[in-house]
């Protein structure tokens, strides 16, 4: 695989760091999650918008969408 080794290692090692960091987090009880439950705190508050943007960037840039699914389609032109 010709994927640049340094970038690949970085991508693959970050989740481990992420998991280690997560173990240090204070536990938030269910009744304390009112703010986290807000619509504007979701990863993608508007799913149609996320799909639309993902498809546009997929069609106009070289990268694979990192967020929601880009949907099918040629993406040519």
């Amino acid at each position: 695989m010709r994927i640049r080794i340094r970038s690949s290692r970085l991508i693959l090692s970050l989740p481990i760091l992420f998991a280690l960091a997560a173990t240090g987090c204070a536990k938030v009880s269910p009744w304390e999650r009112d703010l986290l439950a807000r619509r504007d705190m979701s990863w993608e508050p508007d799913s149609l918008e996320a799909k639309r943007e993902s498809h546009i960037y997929f069609s106009k840039e070289a990268s694979m969408p990192g967020g929601s699914g880009g949907g099918g389609g040629c993406g040519c032109n």
Partner: peptide, 20 residues
């Protein structure tokens, strides 16, 4: 319910675009 928006995996797979 409180986690509704927070635990969703955002999948880049066309076949797995889970809603928020």
């Amino acid at each position: 319910r409180a986690l509704t928006a927070l635990t969703t995996s955002a999948l880049a797979v066309p076949g797995l675009a889970l809603p928020a």
